[in-house]
């Protein structure tokens, strides 16, 4: 195992990301405006509700959850499907396939630098601001450690799903369509736009069997110490489930990619 080449890729990713400080600034500013939209919408939703607690979530809980989900989205979303399918269409992918490491690892470590940078530049500041604004509504304890571990799991599950969908685009030569299907399904069924507890019972049963919940629902509820996600009440099951999905998706994407990459057709050079 030669870790140096992976480290070099990650480092390059960090340096590249830091080059575009203007982009980061715009992202942070835009996100603040976006979050005010989320805030106003849910404030009026809760104001119209007859009870202050809906499905075990208070207004504060919901807002913390959604704000951190948005921050997590910025940190996790690397537009991998978009990038890979563009490379497939342009033929640039050939150069990457020639490199002496598996394509899956190459892509992962290329974007991992991005992940690290955005974690510190956008997720952490958002977290601190939310923590101060809500005056300690986020419980602090060992849950922070489990949260970080769970975010790691979320990162991997998200990566494997993205990679799986990118592999499909080897067959379809479609960029936009594939990407939009993936994005809308993942964002809804992972609980990124609406917390899963709000889902109707029947739909929730289905969503529980899908891997998407590992990405937003699991880490955020562990952080907020919601019922069913505390060390005493099923956190281990949730973390175990994440691990199972990681392993399963890893195996699945590996097989699917190795099978599909032989089919690749690149026009011209």
């Amino acid at each position: 195992m030669n870790a140096r080449k992976y480290l070099a890729l990650t480092r390059a990713g960090i340096i590249q990301e830091l080059q575009f400080r203007m982009g980061t600034f715009i992202t942070v500013l835009g996100n603040l405006i976006y979050l005010t939209l989320v805030y106003f919408l849910w404030r009026s939703i809760y104001a119209s509700s007859p009870t202050p607690v809906v499905n075990g979530m208070t207004f504060n809980d919901t807002i913390i959850y959604l704000v951190l989900a948005t921050a997590l989205f910025n940190f996790l979303e690397m537009y991998l499907v978009w990038n890979i399918s563009r490379k497939i269409q342009s033929g640039e992918i050939v150069m990457d396939l020639l490199k002496p490491m598996s394509y899956r690892k190459l892509m992962f470590f290329t974007f991992f630098g991005d992940n690290i940078t955005t974690f510190f530049l956008t997720f952490l500041p958002t977290f601190i601001v939310v923590f101060i604004l809500t005056k300690g509504a986020i419980p602090v304890g060992t849950n922070l450690i489990w949260f970080v571990i769970s975010v790691g799991g979320a990162l991997l599950v998200n990566y494997f799903i993205d990679f799986f969908v990118s592999t499909i685009s080897l067959y379809t030569e479609s960029t936009w369509g594939i990407n939009i299907v993936k994005e809308s399904i993942v964002l809804l069924f992972s609980g990124a736009t609406i917390p899963l507890v709000f889902f109707p019972e029947k739909l929730r049963v289905v969503v529980k069997c899908l891997p998407f919940r590992c990405i937003y629902d699991t880490p955020l509820n562990i952080l907020l110490q919601k019922d069913g996600y505390t060390p005493g009440s099923g956190m281990w099951t949730m973390l175990g489930l994440q691990l199972v999905w990681c392993v399963a998706l890893c195996a699945l994407t590996g097989i699917f990619w190795n099978f599909s990459v032989r089919r690749i057709t690149v026009n011209g050079g």
Binding site: I45, S48, N55, F198
Partner: peptide, 29 residues
């Protein structure tokens, strides 16, 4: 696929709208 994608995003968008209203009967009157 793009047409399918368009239908999917709209269906998912509508689902989130529907889920919201399942929990809250009205928004701001």
């Amino acid at each position: 696929i793009s047409t399918f994608g368009m239908i999917m995003t709209n269906t998912v968008g509508f689902m989130s709208f529907y889920i919201l209203f399942k929990n809250f009967p009205s928004i701001n009157g």
